[in-house]
Design a protein around this nucleic acid. Structure first.
Length: 210
DNA sequence: ACATTAAGTGATT
DNA sequence: AATCACTTAATGT
C-alpha cells in the first residue's frame, strides 16, 4: 500500500506531506461497480486514487445516467474540491469502474494542507483544472460530435481507464453511459467492426488501434 | 433441452 | 437517432 502511494504521488509531494498522508489517510479497497459518491451526498473526504479507475456520472430529471469522464491513478475528484469550500452536496455520482484502491483524506485536512504545503496546493489546483477541461470535452462531445464519434471516443477512454484494449461490457451498458438506446449502439459497433477498428464478441469489445 | 440474456436487423417515425 | 417488433446467437441451469 505504501508502495502504491509512493509510485503515484511520491514525485509530487514532499516527504513530510507523504508521511501525513500515510498517517491520516484511510486506505480503502473498492470493488468494481461500487458507488463511491452519490448525487446529494455530503462529501466528507477526498479520494486519492492509487490503483484502478472511477467513472463520473451525471443524472437527468428522469434518473437517466450520462457519463462525464473517467478518472485514474494519481488523480482526485474535482467535486470534492468544490464541496470542501462550502457545505455543498455532490452533483455527480462516482462509481468504481474497476476494482480500485484509494486513500481517503478528511476534508478538514485537505484544507489545512492547502496552506501548509505548496505541492498539495498545486496538486489540487492542477486536478481541478484538468477535470474542468475533461468536463468541457464531454460537453463538446455531446453537443458537436455524432453518435459514432462519441462512441469511439468512449471506447478509447474506457480502454485507457482500464489499461486494457479488451473492454468488458454490454451494448446496453454503453447505451446507458452515452444516454442512447441499445439498438443504436449495436448498429454503430457493427459499423466500426466492418471498418476494422474493433472486434466484437459477446460481452467484449476489442479495440485495435488505440 | 430449455430458459434467459445479449446482440443483430428491418421497418417506421 | 429513437423505437418497435422480431430473430438469432451465446450462455447458464
Amino acid at each position: 500500500m505504501i508502495e502504491e502511494l509512493k509510485v503515484n504521488y511520491g514525485y509530487l509531494f514532499e516527504d513530510e506531506l507523504m508521511e501525513e498522508i500515510q498517517a491520516i489517510g484511510i486506505y480503502r479497497e473498492i470493488p468494481e461497480g461500487t458507488i463511491i459518491i452519490d448525487i446529494g451526498d455530503y462529501i466528507k473526504a477526498m479520494p486519492l486514487i492509487l490503483k484502478g479507475a472511477i467513472k463520473v456520472m451525471r443524472e437527468d430529471d428522469n434518473g437517466e445516467d450520462l457519463l462525464l469522464y473517467f478518472i485514474e491513478n494519481g488523480d482526485t475528484c474535482a467535486m470534492t474540491i468544490t464541496c470542501c469550500m462550502g457545505e455543498t452536496k455532490s452533483a455527480i455520482r462516482a462509481i468504481a469502474e474497476t476494482d480500485t484502491q484509494l486513500i481517503m483524506i478528511p476534508v478538514q485536512k485537505m484544507q489545512e494542507w492547502f496552506h501548509k504545503y505548496k505541492s498539495w496546493q498545486s496538486f489540487v489546483l492542477q486536478s481541478y483544472h484538468s477535470r474542468l477541461n475533461e468536463l468541457l470535452e464531454a460537453v463538446d462531445a455531446i453537443a458537436f460530435l455524432k453518435m459514432d464519434e462519441r462512441l469511439l471516443r468512449y471506447l478509447r477512454d474506457k480502454a485507457i481507464a482500464n489499461r486494457d484494449e479488451l473492454i468488458n461490457t454490454t451494448h446496453q451498458e454503453i447505451a446507458n453511459d452515452l444516454h442512447t438506446s441499445r439498438v443504436v449502439v449495436s448498429r454503430i459497433l457493427k459499423k466500426l467492426e466492418h471498418e476494422g477498428l474493433i472486434e466484437l464478441r459477446r460481452n467484449k469489445i476489442k479495440i485495435h488501434d488505440l
